[in-house]
Amino acid sequence: MNSNKKLLGAIVQNLLLVIYAIFALFPLIWMVILTFKPDTQMYTTTFIFDPTLDNYKEVLFNSDYISYMIDSLIVSGGAVIVSVVAGVPAAYALARYNFPKKEDIAFQILSFKFAPEILVVLPLFMIFQKLRIYDTHFGLIWVYQLISMPLLIWVVRGYFEDISVEIEHAAQVDGYTWYQIFFKMLIPLIKPGLVSAALLAFIFAWNSFTFPLILAGTNVQPITVAITKFLGTDSAHYGQLAVAATVSALPAIIFALCIQKHLVRGLSFGAVKG
């Protein structure tokens, strides 16, 4: 009877998980289905429709969609690169060195993320106009790294702190310079943290809407802003909108799949005493 109880428990557990999975995934599935529906069948709620690739053709070949994608890639990628180049040394400094007000500075960096975007976007708009970087890639990269850098610094700092300082000392005694130690010893060790933080930073930047809406829009149009174009004033092309949204989710997914093997943590364990 004991084993019957266990079996029942397992069935109930799995059932609940399946229900949750359907609930969580349904909007995504529905969106993908929408991309294949002709406009006329857009509002039916059955799974029966005449599949068509018209929406894809329209979006990918007859609109500026590709250029929006490229804009998004430039600004999001740029923001991530800036964050990594400036953030990793900053994280190292915060992890290794003791200097006055260290914790305050670390907290300050994190606090950039506290303010709602909408609150700072107007002053930024005016500053950008004055500096003539409004509606430029440079301007957007600048403001995107505000979103991505704090996250990256905090994650990577934790990884640096986990590396025992003796590893650096050992490498020093072995005759390596600080730069060699940093790039040959430390960077490989923080890689799992670095790539996962970079991925998150990329996704945040990619999905950002408020900043590009206000601070760009003509020369530079990231995908999030551009998608709204498919909701015209006269007609709403939901199929095309769905295609635009689905395709725009791809880069982040591809990025994540590519670096999946680095997301596994644990490399840094086991080298020092257990």
């Binding site: 590893i167 050992a170 490498a171 020093q172 072995d174 364990f269």
Partner: peptide, 16 residues
């Protein structure tokens, strides 16, 4: 690096 010593650390400090 320039003192020409070799050191064994308490926590071994191997490069993982």
């Amino acid at each position: 690096a320039h003192r020409d010593t070799a050191m064994v650390f308490e926590n071994y400090a191997l490069y993982p």
